[in-house]
Design a protein around this nucleic acid. Sequence first.
RNA 1: GCCACCCUAGCUCAGUCGGUAGAGCAACUGAUUCGUAAUCAGUAGGUCGCCGGUUCGAAUCCGGCGGGUGGCUCCA
Length: 650
Amino acid sequence: MKSIHVKLPDGKVTEVASGAKVGELAASLGVNSNVIAAKIDGTQVDLERALSRDCTLDWIPLDSSEGVDILRHSTAHLMAQAVQSLFPGTQVTIGPTIEDGFYYDFKRDASFTPEELQKIEDRMRELARSNLKVIREEMPRQKAIQLFRKLGEEYKVAILEEIPDETVSLYRQGDWVDLCRGPHVPSTGVIRAFKLISVAGAYWRGDERNEMLQRIYGTSWPTEEALREYLRLLEEAKKRDHRRLGKELGLFMVSDTIGPGLPLWLPKGAIVRSILERYIVDLERSLGYEHVYTPQLARVELYQRSGHWDHFKDNMYPPMVFEDKEELVLRPMNCPHHVMIYQHELRSYRDLPLRLAELGTMYRYERSGVLSGLSRVRAMTLNDAHIFCLPEQIQSETVSVLRLIERVYRDFGFTDFWYRLSLRDAKDKGKFVDNDAMWDNAERCLRQALAEVGIQYKEAEGEAAYYGPKIDVQLRDVLGHSETLSTVQLDFYLPERFGLEYVAKDGQRRRPVMIHRGVISTMERMMAFLIEHYAGNFPLWLSPVQIKVMTVTDQQKDYGQKVFDKLKVGGWRVEFDDRNEKLSYKIRAAQLAKIPYAVVIGDREVKDQTVSPRRRGGETLKAMAVEDFVQTLKSEVARELGNELSGSGG
RNA sequence: GCCACCCUAGCUCAGUCGGUAGAGCAACUGAUUCGUAAUCAGUAGGUCGCCGGUUCGAAUCCGGCGGGUGGCUCCA
């Protein structure tokens, strides 16, 4: 019998008989029983895989990221097995792993009820307990097609018909079989800590023209503790949800009567917003942006000219018609308005780059199913700017926008984000402007800028704007959804459509380039992120109410009022709680309202003409004069602005 | 827009098998004057999302519509 050399993870080389199984080698070496799969020369394999040549071997333990992924995939299989045993006639389609879990899409006429979900979970536990061996089997593709056709699995047949390989692999556990690349856990007994989460509709192959399948989401973990911890984190995340905190803290509301996706900013939310607006406008002005105001209505012709009407109509509200003459639309974007400002006078190359910025309110018709709190709305105010520049300024302008984005994120302490280079889908002719040279050029410019700043990014085909490619910055909300916060879009198209010109050094008329950019997104979405980011505990400089003055008894009302007035006049956002309640009751209320400072006033403070501040969270400061307290506040704000807003760390 | 689920007082939620609504918190009134996360008592508050149907009778059953939630699709 031939023997082969296997290099183990510790670097040692061992000799085994050709044909020995990976799992047998693991057992003979006494490796951790947690190992559920392995990698041969970097390719994942089951423990049942036979070793047939010299190779390098790595173990995949259950609690490694690869191991958990395999576990979840196997759990998806277990669920499909349970579903098909409980509901004969249900067809399987695909069942991949996703972050923190898995799903499987089924074709079944009825949808799954919550009770059925529970039944499925129960059946899964039975199947797991019976510890079925998971067996891989390879067969010619045509034979597999016959097999699944006989089983009535039309979707699997469809998938098989598109697989290029002539040999495919199946996995069997008990009497159940599925088409799958693998690898899988050696037996169902490995699957212990799982939970089915929800049912949802999903289109076959993700195309809404196709039939809708029933998708079941679930999660699976190496241990019960890990599962419990995950479920606990989910609960925690829900408490940070901006929709919940927005309601609890009185920041914003949505009214059915006004309409979905049209949020109202309550006084406290409006304070935060106005501070944010001042922050970004000041920052932009310091960087050479000029702010403008433009109207929210425009003639339809404007958008026909800009191309929005052809490419963006589905997201626009229908026009308002006046006496069959004039048609006006609510604007979905203000780039054409800024184009008009550019064209208002003859521009010289010396005027460029011209950076026009606006906090502009836009209206976009979003399909009802996608609306969500403040992060997905139909009326929104964008932190928008359009940079008109010379072609040779593209890179430096793009770089400075990227630096601005990085600066702002540092200021607010955002760390969980990534860059996406969004490109067109060249096959989708209707969706994107058709001009290959223009797209290629724009794409090259963006790549160069990203390289200059040294930014890592992922590419996404089909995510571009209709007029050009863009760099998007994706942030994750507390529930794990990724949303675009910032964007830099390069546009050769609108300048062409509107015939923009500048007078070059040689006196010739030339065409400028436009860069569309948004840094803090819309005020709505930024607010949503900030609420979740701070879990409602806004830093002092942003907090809608900064201080709550409270008396211990009615005896201190007069002095309390004086303290309150002094702070109010000093420009602090302060409230006075002089209700006839116990101090601890008032403290609790202030804490729940997430107010940074409670200022306690009792007999001692009246006598000494002091205040006793208590920080949100419970830290009590020693009694001090109001003036000293104000100094404390001032230095705290300075520290926040210093650290957060200069980006100097901290 | 599509699939599923949900909608009861300002908020969070009970409400068995159909017999015209209940709690806690908040609000208000009174008592209490109490020093760092809930003092006690009382009062008021709801066309049970809306419209229609079944029924002697509907928060409860059925249908339609609206809104929300989780997904799908879309996402400038």
